[in-house]
Amino acid sequence: MSFAILTDTTRCTGCERCVDACVEINHLSSDMRYRWREPDGLNGARYTSVVHEPGDHYVRLQCRHCLEPACAAVCPVGALHKTADGPVVYDREICMGCRYCMMACPYEIPRYMWEKNFPYISKCTMCYEAMRRGDIDQPACTKACPEEATVFFTSREEALDEARRRIADNPGVYFSNRIWGEHQVGGTSVLYLSEVNLDDVFGPRYGSLGDEPYPHATERILSTVPATFVSACAVMAGTYLFLRRRDRVMEEEGRGKVPPSSSQRSEPEDGGEA
């Protein structure tokens, strides 16, 4: 079972009650000012925002809670991790502030509390803590939505079924009848239905995101690390032993060319031979 949120931008009226509810439940400070306000509305004090697209289309942004999240894969200390229930949560007690998650996230969701002296990452956690405690049965944002534009499901399959049902019920409404997040970057827990092309709204900067989970790119390389290490050690040690043997044989037999400076050889050689 994996929690999911289905956001239908055709229903969103841009009232931003989800944002208010999010601010309230997460005890976020007042909006960041000036320099650190980004056009998409997310920042160190906002986990979710509503982007106003031309033609009165409203798109709510939040963490997609990828099935294979890049942020969790790259965090060197595991401060971000994917829970069994689906949400990707953040443990600020472990974070060391390297900001790699911000660079790696394909949707550029993690933001930084730049105003703080010693800042943390800020990011939507699908209200996972409060839900696990049993305070609420669904995230504050979905609960606050008056138009059912963003809906919470306890299972991603249900969310996908609902999305497909809406597409079937409203032919010609949704952009290329596509569910954003169904397969993109290996699938996300937050799904989007929209009447506009969302790739233009939160698309990547170069190329398209593709369906391959992001962490695979680095894991391909990292999986070769042990082999590389062992073979580098072996090749270097082997070369060393071989060349040392060669030099010795040459010296003993007293023929061939003995390296000119072998008598002045300094400490490391002696140490190696000892």
Partner: peptide
């Protein structure tokens, strides 16, 4: 922290 908290999937 990386000494204690391990994430083997992270290049960093």
């Amino acid at each position: 922290r990386p000494v204690v908290f391990w994430n083997l999937h992270s290049p960093l």
